[in-house]
Design a protein around this nucleic acid. Structure first.
Ligand code: MN
Ligand code: MN
Ligand code: ZN
Ligand code: ZN
Lengths: 139, 139
DNA sequence: TACTTATTGAAATTGATTTTCATTATCAAT
DNA sequence: ATTGATAATGAAAATCAATTTCAATAAGTA
């Protein structure tokens, strides 16, 4: 997976740096969405000289490259999660933040109908479920 | 409607002030979600001496009283909209911000099923549609 | 190895929100 | 109506995230 990400960076003419690799490592290994400051703290554990600005810039790039997705939660709206191919929605743990993509719901038609009834031209939809993940239910 | 809101403030032991009335007026007459600074600017047109802090504080109160709801949009996550009774979802214009509550979708069962399949204990869901309102389609 | 240029990070800047606190205004009790 | 307790206000300072600037550094190509 990391190879794919770094390849995509290279493909866009961007350089491979130790900082970028470290940031990508953190994001790829996280099962929850992280904001830039969280990534900064986590990455600095192995790269103490890293600057915050680099984290902001790198995460913005990764989003533009379609590798990261912005996720809004009660605990913050600047969180980013690795994006999965295709159209999916998220199920997020309110306790630990664990995020799971799920498929199987196809509401697109129902959404169109609602929009039509209100004379809106539907452009997008935002659907997210939240609850307790298996582990957090036991605690 | 305004009477209801002011009554609720009083009921909670809060005082009726000119500032609060002005802020409530703006929020009740807006058909789109507004953030504190927008409310500040709008309210100052009639109350130039109003302070920003008062707007922040008042809007926070109104949210706690269940009169306002926080609404997340691409253009910002600090926007508040007057809350409608009952369980509804929103349809929001991406151009002018016009917000419409709609009913008629009942996906609760489908959501529960998805959660179960992933061994999550469902607590909440978030659904929002976006598109162009009738007026913005013509422009 | 040398060179071009993207990248980096410290520091300054911006902008939103919160905190502090002295002053003012509301409202209930006289 | 007057008074008094105290809730509310707003200017100013403080905080915090995020962005901009810029000189130094490092990546990748020739
Ligand atoms: Mn969908
Ligand atoms: Mn619902
Ligand atoms: Zn969890
Ligand atoms: Zn519109």
């Amino acid at each position: 997976m990391k190879e794919t990400w770094m390849a995509k960076l290279k493909e866009k003419g961007m350089r491979i740096t130790a900082q970028r690799e470290a940031i990508v490592d953190i994001l790829l290994n996280s099962e929850k969405a992280l904001d830039p400051l969280e990534v900064y703290d986590l990455t600095r554990q192995s790269h103490p000289s890293l600057g915050v600005v680099t984290v902001y810039r790198t995460m913005e790039c990764l989003e533009h490259l379609g590798l990261l997705q912005k996720v809004h939660q009660a605990c913050g709206c600047n969180k980013f999660l690795k994006l999965k191919e295709g159209h999916h929605h998220l199920l997020i743990c309110t306790n630990c933040g664990k995020a799971v993509y799920f498929e199987g719901l196809n509401f697109e038609n129902a959404f169109s109908e609602i929009a039509e009834n209100n004379n809106f031209l539907l452009q997008d939809h935002w659907l997210q479920l939240s609850g307790l993940c298996p582990r957090c239910q036991k605690i």
